[in-house]
Design a protein around this nucleic acid. Structure first.
Length: 692
RNA sequence: GCCGGGAUGGCGGAAUUGGUAGACGCACGGGACUCAAAAUCCCGCGGUGGCGACACCAUGAGAGUUCGAUUCUCUCUCCCGGCACCA
């Protein structure tokens, strides 16, 4: 932790930028999209850092900038600095209007999203700098779109080849110069937008004819020779400011002493305990108004001193709670030997909204603890499942003061008329409310849904089964409980079916081996349906697509109910061994397959049907490959890529046989009448396409 | 604005490496059972035309690659998440 400027404390996450980026390749259990987002966020860019020399107050100064497009350096027509840049401050000293502009910029939002969408504004500083390669004079502007926190807080302006610079130059009448030859347009025509693609340098003196890589090499070498620049790697990632002016965070254990400076609280005095009776009044940090908390003595010299009142960002705690979970009662250390047993986390589940901040901070924090010798691993989470957001409608009313109060969608009657207009009223008073769109469930928007309602109405298994059935976990979902009846019906149907079979099945285990090849066609088909469904379900579990696992359970029950003899009167085992074996096999698969989705019901059925004591201890069901083999296979028949019918052929039919059979089909003959067959494409086991 | 993801029937969704679009459900319509209702069971259910066999259209929009595109490429529209202090 470093304290840089009052009142901010920082974590030096940028020191780990290289490792955090490179180690993404060591995380096969993480979704690609999350790794991509993190890589972009860390933002490693290769470029050139160079300086424009200038004179001010009789001194020689340099304005440093960073660029990833050094190949366009000959197209520089201006430079722009952030409002916080020292050059801007110097220029504002004798320019009142500029000083006002700078103040206005500083008052604006610092959020990236706001900065990126604001209208580009700027003002000339009156200071002129020298192009390091051409020696030309270049004007310096202050631009509200330049970020002090990234790079040097200053940029070169190449309106011909950077869209932001182009807009800025167009707005303020600055010259635009093309130095990269466009591939498919006349370079002499005036530009309507920046040409940002890579290409060959022209209008660039000695660099003419060079491509991007060669131009950057040559330009960087020339700048280096003049002592005015070199290649540089720049990161988008910034250090992590952790100070918050709130009282309910984790205290920052620092004491400010007039004599000794900033002194850490000694280990023996930790933890710093917050008062529990603070009342936030919306005016700064309430801790600062608590002398009983603030006033203390310096641990070094014993003189009166002040305790730090900033607390830590909540992300700090969430960056290592999972390590502490392994040893929550450890009084002497952050982490003890139990951590080595439990960590890294095998399977982490969290919302996609944490793809960057929380998950990156955690990866950083783990490395800090590693480097302090507290843990022995690099990555906290071996496998990551990122849930999609569950969304719901947002309704609110705005009082005269402008503050919105939100109403839960359950309290609202909403309707959409034929023209698609949405109207909504509050049930309680019948008066209209505004529709605020559809967004993530949150306390502040009061649009959450408590699953307890479903549990109360249907029971935990049905509520759980329904939610698993509704969509794959990684998808965004607009909440609706329409369809929960389907889950209820299915589980009821399963229960009834199983109980109908109970008297037949109970006490007859183990089932003696059945010769399925001797079974009637219908039963073999049913068994094939069950086992191919199981095969697919096991594949789906591997890719976390649990909704289709739930539907596989439904399909298996459908197959069992439809199988002839399976539901008919049980009869003696010896007389009807095959239908009973089918039911036994099918139920055994079905119960184990959906046990994780409807655990209570499956646990109970497993025991009642005497399959065993504990369904969770039973081996996971695997399909029988023999059940999937048939003597004949069905092929889809297409003509010119369009389905015309299907045909059954022997399983081992060769290409010539299949072609002969297909060409003889009447619907194929009809479709190719008057055409010549050019070729026949056969996808084994799937389809035949006749191209004519 | 930038980064990431998404768009398939009235609804949730399915379609493994490009190979039958709409599995499995919900809702809805018809029927059976019932004095009646609920529950349950059976049938139907993308659109257009046709009595029908069937034909054509259809996976946000537009182009492209391919024998064949929901799937791959490009452009666009809209929606969701994140954007570093949601006080």
């Amino acid at each position: 932790v470093e304290k840089r400027e009052i009142p901010m404390y920082y974590m030096a996450i940028t020191r780990y930028a290289e490792e955090l980026l490179a180690a993404l390749d060591t995380l096969p259990g993480w979704p690609e999209r999350v790794k991509t987002m993190q890589a972009n966020w860390i933002g490693k860019s290769f470029g050139v850092r160079f300086a424009f020399p200038y004179e001010v107050d009789g001194r020689s100064e340099k304005l440093w900038v960073f660029t990833t497009r050094a190949d366009t350096i000959m197209g520089v027509t201006f430079a722009a600095v952030a409002a916080e840049h020292p050059l801007a401050a110097r220029a504002a000293r004798d320019n009142r209007k500029l000083a006002e502009f700078i103040e206005e910029c500083k008052r604006g939002s610092v959020m990236e999203a706001d900065l990126a969408t604001i209208e580009k504004q700027g003002m000339p500083t009156g200071i002129s700098i020298t192009h390091p390669l051409t020696g030309e004079a270049v004007p310096v502007w202050v631009g509200n779109y330049v970020l002090m926190a990234y790079g040097e807080g200053a940029v070169m302006g190449v309106p011909g080849h950077d869209q932001r610079d182009f807009e800025f130059a167009t707005q303020y009448g600055l010259p635009i110069r093309s130095v990269i030859k466009p591939r498919d347009r006349d370079p002499e025509l005036p530009l309507t937008q920046a040409y940002v693609e890579y290409g060959i340098c022209y209008n660039s003196g000695k660099y003419n004819g060079l491509d991007y890589a060669r131009a950057v090499d040559a330009i960087a070498a020339d700048l280096k020779a003049k002592g005015l620049g070199d290649k540089q790697v720049l990161w988008r990632l910034r250090d992590w400011g952790i100070s918050r002016q709130r009282y309910w965070g984790c205290p920052i254990p620092i004491i400010h002493c007039g004599t000794c400076g900033d002194v850490p609280v000694p280990d023996s005095d930790l933890p710093v305990v917050l008062p529990e009776d603070c009342v936030p009044d919306g005016m700064g940090n309430p801790l600062a108004k608590r002398p009983d908390f603030v006033n203390c003595t310096c641990p070094k010299c014993g003189k009166p001193a002040q305790r730090e009142t900033d607390t830590m960002d909540t992300f700090v705690d969430s960056s290592w709670y999972y390590i502490r979970f392994a040893c929550p009662d450890s009084a002497r250390a952050m982490a003890d030997e139990r951590v080595a047993y439990w960590l890294p986390v095998d399977q982490y589940v969290g919302g996609i909204e944490h793809a960057i901040l929380h998950l990156l901070y955690s990866r950083f924090w783990t490395r800090v603890m590693r480097d302090l010798g507290l843990v022995a691993f690099d990555e906290p989470f071996a496998n990551l499942l990122t849930q999609g957001m569950v969304l719901n409608e947002i309704y609110f009313r705005r009082a005269d003061g402008g503050r919105a109060s939100y109403y839960n969608p359950a309290e609202i009657d909403a309707s959409v008329d034929e023209a698609g207009n949405r109207s909504a009223v509050l049930k309680a008073d019948g008066a209209p409310v505004e529709f605020g769109g559809i967004g993530t469930m949150s306390k502040s928007k009061n649009n959450g849904v408590d699953p307890q309602e479903l549990v109360d109405r249907y029971g935990a298994d049905i509520a759980r089964f329904f939610m698993m059935f509704t969509s794959p976990p990684e998808d965004t979902l607009v909440w609706s409980d329409a369809g929960v009846e389907g889950a209820a019906r299915f589980l009821r149907r399963l229960w009834n079916f199983a109980y109908e079979k109970q008297s037949v099945l109970a006490g007859q285990r183990p089932v003696r081996p059945v010769d399925w090849s001797a079974a009637p066609e219908e039963l073999r088909k049913a068994r094939k349906e069950i086992h191919s469904t199981l095969k697919q379900a096991n594949y789906d579990i591997g890719r976390h697509q649990f909704n289709t696992v739930a539907s596989a359970g439904m399909k298996i029950l459908n197959a069992l109910e439809r199988a002839p003899g399976a539901i008919a009167s049980p009869g003696p085992t010896a007389a009807q061994p095959i239908p009973q074996a089918l039911v036994t096999d099918g139920l055994s698969i079905l119960i184990r397959l959906i046990a994780p989705i409807a655990p209570h019901l499956c646990h109970c059925l497993w025991r009642e049907l005497r399959f065993g004591e504990d369904v969770l201890a039973a081996p996971w069901p695997e399909h029988d490959p023999a059940a999937l083999i048939e003597d004949e296979i069905e092929l889809v028949v297409q003509v010119n890529g369009r389905k015309r019918g299907d045909v059954r052929v022997p399983r081992d039919a060769d290409t010539t046989t299949i072609e002969r059979i297909v060409l003889a089909l009447s619907f194929v003959q009809k479709a190719i009448a008057g055409l010549t067959v050019k070729k026949i494409i056969i996808v084994p086991g799937r389809l035949v396409n006749v191209v004519a």
